[in-house]
Amino acid sequence: MSKSFLIDTTLCTACRGCQVACKQWHDLPAEKTINRGTYENPADLSFDTYKLVRMREEVINGKLNWLFFPEQCRHCIEAPCLETAGDPGAIYKDDKTGAIIFTANTKRLNAAEIIESCPYNIPRKAPDGTLAKCDMCIDRVENGLPPACVQTCPTGAMNFGDRDEMLALAGKQLAVAKKKFPKAMLIDADDLNVIYLVGYEPKLYCKNAMASNAVFDITRQMALKRMIRPLTNIASRLL
């Protein structure tokens, strides 16, 4: 049974404990930031920032909302990045948890191609071409601990556990949320191990909250890649 997250944005207060806990566990350096006229910082995910709470001021039905979305890798069940890479030494899926793991070998991949393959625009590249993103705190999970972001969350917005448990919780929380947010929904729950519960249209929260239509193009690209993979694999072995 794979592991899943349920991220209930209706409970998120954007305290950003998760964002800091992620940095702390992974010992990632702080980025030099400036205040850009918003609380949201850094400006984007990066090689040093796997998790970022998006904050959007949206007037919906004449009422102001401040929407929070702790953005991170979705750990897709069929992960386009993994398919695109076709290099298990660089990107692989952990069988026990379903975590999609990027290794230092991502340096040998075509970074732009991998980034483009992600329907949620998650992977980011270091100057040397190595790619990074959320690793589900797999070292913690293997040792019986929840991911750092889940452990630190005070409100129950971040949840983690066996996929069936999380799906059950998602169903329950969705029913609760619907009372206040008639349009509440789970985002791409069937395809992802990181399931977001949102109260309004996903695109209001974050540009890439939901897989874009471009995903079809990506799938096409992937199919193409699969066709030519044997060649590239041979080529890389020769090199």
Binding site: R16, Q19, V20, K23, Q24, P29, A30, E31, K32, T33, I34, N35, Y39, N41, P42
Partner: peptide
Amino acid sequence: QPWLLELQPQVF
């Protein structure tokens, strides 16, 4: 603390 300063770097 650099991680916290990263989040709120400047008085606003």
